[in-house]
Design a protein around this nucleic acid. Structure first.
Lengths: 259, 259
DNA sequence: GGGGAGAGATGCCGC
DNA sequence: GCGGCATTTCTCCCC
């Protein structure tokens, strides 16, 4: 292929991408590329083969062939150009508001595609911390016998307390929920809420209970030091419910294993 | 198109995807689809047009045409099958170890592509919290006159303390760095380190300094309550350095705006 | 593999 | 916009 043809091919690619951006299509490019970013930090990603995705809202993602998170990215509302400079093909992105800049040097474009995607749907999720808090609020005895609900979340004016109760002795109890194994941070958070509540209500004693399926050894020690207690509470087991009602999930026979 | 032809087309698509999975290629599918997930939580995503990506390590991502994060995903080491059930085309994924399951009902496949991607490169990043801690360790006077370095991070045996110093009076000082505006969590963390150090060394007083470019009003209040102090420290300004040395970044003339 | 903490975290909701 | 916090957080490092 002559250099002229190569240039024409580049120019045609650039024209197609510019049109796709104009039409607010979602773009996918598979390419051998090098990525440079400057903004909140500064990064360099040496040459390799990646998938580049540009969304209609201006989001740009660079994905390596492994891992969940993009290796480089630009947030929504970024602007993008496909340009040739010194015979090199670039994607140049910037976010004026955030003062962020990203350049992708495209050494070789293996494939590309663009299409308008129509999707206004939102994810319906159950089984989060809020659901766990609701479960406890509906039946505080799960955590401790004799607890009576005072309020939940913003219903109280004391900040982001998951569940607030009175215990059998009439003491105020702050319950902090964690869906997974509780750590230092969870205990610190509980401590903060308890102290805030003591200060605001002028109480000498406010109890704290950490409700989670498990707790790290060190966090348990810290919890004990502060005079708080731990309650084993399993997050709602949606997994089992779904697997029961919907047999199609799981139970594979012929798998292509990715070990 | 006859139903038979439609079926053949589906079967051919399935065969191609199975082969691509076997070859550990990276797969991209643009499709109108519905997604169901069950694992750490349970989610339903009603029909809409999305980009689906399957990587060679078993990672699966579902991206809507907006936003940085995938709306649904499966972690690495997941297994995937393309199957037809009751005339419906599905991608069925599972992660045996994590007990996670994801089904994608493909109502219409708009396009697809697969290719082997070769990339072993790692991101080179500068301008993170560690760099900020190094800057302070190299010149503690940035934070306060008279500070003398004791140790940094794993060099100290007191845990994850960013920078440890003695002040002019010989008091031990814990310095916690934050690249951005410090919040409750940062103060809680500093408090935890100071108390841990007091306990381990049997000291009556250990000072705490929060070094960050800014702090929220509430966090500043909390910091004051604990007798800690705040030092305005700007994270290294890599942005300006790069923009100076590399004129190609920024300064766009003809932008396709994504506002 | 667990523990601990940063991240160019992202996203959500409240004010 | 900032604040506060959960996240199917993800990723890294160290033990």
């Amino acid at each position: 292929m002559s250099k002229k043809e190569g240039l024409d091919k580049k120019e045609q690619f650039i024209a197609e991408m510019a049109a796709a951006l104009q039409r607010r299509e979602t773009i996918v490019v598979g390419a051998d590329c090098e990525v440079m970013y400057s903004g909140r930090a500064e990064t360099l990603l040496p040459p390799g083969e990646r998938l580049i995705m540009i969304k209609e809202d201006g989001t740009l993602l660079v994905h390596q062939p492994h891992g969940s998170a993009p290796i480089n990215y630009m947030k929504e509302s970024s602007s993008h150009r496909f340009v040739v400079e010194n015979d090199n093909l670039y994607i140049k992105s910037q976010n004026q508001v955030l003062h962020e800049y990203l350049d992708i040097l495209l050494a070789k474009v293996h494939f590309f595609h663009s299409a308008k995607l129509s999707d206004g749907q939102k994810l319906q999720l159950t089984g989060n911390e809020k659901d766990m808090a609701n479960m406890i609020a509906a039946n505080p005895a799960i955590v401790e016998e004799g607890l009576k609900l005072v309020g939940q979340e913003e219903q109280t004016k004391y900040g982001f307390i998951d569940v607030l109760c009175y215990d059998a002795q009439g003491l105020l109890v702050v319950i902090e929920c964690k869906r997974y194994k509780a750590d230092f941070q969870a205990v610190s958070q509980l401590r903060r809420y308890v102290e805030r509540l003591k200060g605001m209500k002028g109480l000498a004693r406010v109890r704290g209970i950490l409700a989670a399926p498990a707790i790290t050894t060190n966090a348990a020690k810290m919890l004990h030091d502060f005079g708080f207690s731990f309650a084993i509470v399993q997050a709602p087991k949606y997994k089992e419910r779904l697997r029961k009602s919907q047999k199609s999930l799981g139970e594979f026979e012929n798998n292509v294993e990715n070990d």
